[in-house]
Amino acid sequence: MSVNKTDYRLLTIITEAALESRLIDALEQCGAPGYTIMDVRGKGDRGVRSAGWDQSGNIRVDVVCDEVTANRALAHVRDRFYENYAMIATLSPVEVLRPEKFSPR
């Protein structure tokens, strides 16, 4: 099974747990075919996010999609959330099996 390595992207966003439902809505609007959410904790320029209780939790959202969707989603979350929320986002190329699962909705 061959796939074009440059076609698919893993978009990883780490942000405040408070943002979860709005972030997911935004990603789906951008055409994300699916997502995986993890509860995480760590430290960044907004201090330690210890996940000890409601307001200090972080989430990590992974989306695998095509390059166009990934760039659109990245630009959208940057414009909407970067200024006021603790958030980082990264984009990396990934190889996938069954590419039809990751075409935009």
């Binding site: 405040e16 408070a18 943002l19 709005r22 907004r46 201090g47 409601d54 307001q55 200024e83 006021n84 929320y85």
Partner: peptide
Amino acid sequence: SYIAVPAAMRISVPEANPTLSL
């Protein structure tokens, strides 16, 4: 408050620094 209000403020007034109020 430290449950209902921080959550609501984070969504509605995101430019407010939650560190100060908490």
